[in-house]
Simulated assay, not measured.
Amino acid sequence: MNWQDHIVSDNQVLLGKPTIKGTRISVELVLELFSAGWTEKQILESYPTVTAESLRAVFVYLKEFIKDPFCKFIL
């Protein structure tokens, strides 16, 4: 999966935080929801603009970021 198809950073949206493309839903929010015990189904039902594929892209993005912390500047 190419996370760049789903995760973007725009200085005009949430001060440039990585977000799910076409939304104002940040990678940070998705992680907060999962860490609070939300399921994928709950997130998808609560945020209809988010897809299962874009949720998976969040984790691919994080994996790449952990491997190379400078990748965030590639957005």
Rank of each mutant, 00 (worst) to 15 (best):
S9P: 09
D10F: 06
P18G: 09
I66E: 10
R56K: 12
E53L: 15
L55N: 06
F73G: 09
P48H: 11
L44K: 02
V27F: 01
C71Q: 14
F65E: 13
I20G: 04
E53I: 13
G16N: 13
S35N: 15
K67D: 09
K67W: 03
F70D: 10
K63H: 11
V60I: 15
T19H: 09
Q12G: 06
L33K: 10
S54L: 01
H6V: 03
R24E: 14
I74M: 13
E53D: 04
W38Y: 15
E45L: 12
S35D: 15
V30W: 02
K41H: 08
V60W: 05
C71I: 15
R24M: 10
T23W: 00
S26F: 00
I25F: 13
D68C: 06
N2F: 03
D68A: 10
S26D: 04
V50E: 07
L14F: 02
I20Y: 00
Y47Q: 02
K67T: 10
E45G: 00
G16I: 03
E53R: 14
W3V: 09
T23G: 07
A36L: 12
Q12I: 04
F65Y: 12
L33V: 04
V60K: 03
S54V: 06
V30I: 14
L31V: 11
E45D: 14
Q4D: 01
K41F: 07
L15W: 08
T23F: 04
C71T: 14
L75F: 09
W3E: 12
V60C: 06
D68K: 09
L33A: 08
F70K: 14
G22I: 06
L75T: 00
K63F: 09
K72Y: 14
I25R: 04
G37Y: 14
K41M: 11
P69E: 07
A36F: 03
S35I: 00
I66G: 01
K67L: 12
L31P: 02
V13K: 09
I74A: 11
E45P: 03
P69D: 13
F65M: 14
V30Q: 10
M1D: 09
K21N: 07
T51V: 13
T19K: 11
L29K: 05
V13R: 12
I66H: 01
C71M: 15
V27P: 01
A52H: 14
T51G: 08
L62S: 05
I20H: 02
L31C: 14
F34E: 08
F59P: 03
I43R: 05
F70P: 00
F34C: 06
I7Y: 07
V27H: 05
V8D: 11
K17I: 03
N2R: 15
Q4R: 15
E45R: 07
Y47R: 15
K17H: 13
K17V: 12
K67C: 06
N2C: 12
L55H: 05
C71P: 02
V58N: 03
K17C: 04
V27L: 11
S26L: 08
T39H: 03
F73S: 04
F73Y: 15
A52R: 12
I43L: 06
Q12M: 13
T39G: 10
S26I: 02
V8H: 11
Y47P: 07
H6N: 11
E28F: 02
D5W: 01
A52I: 02
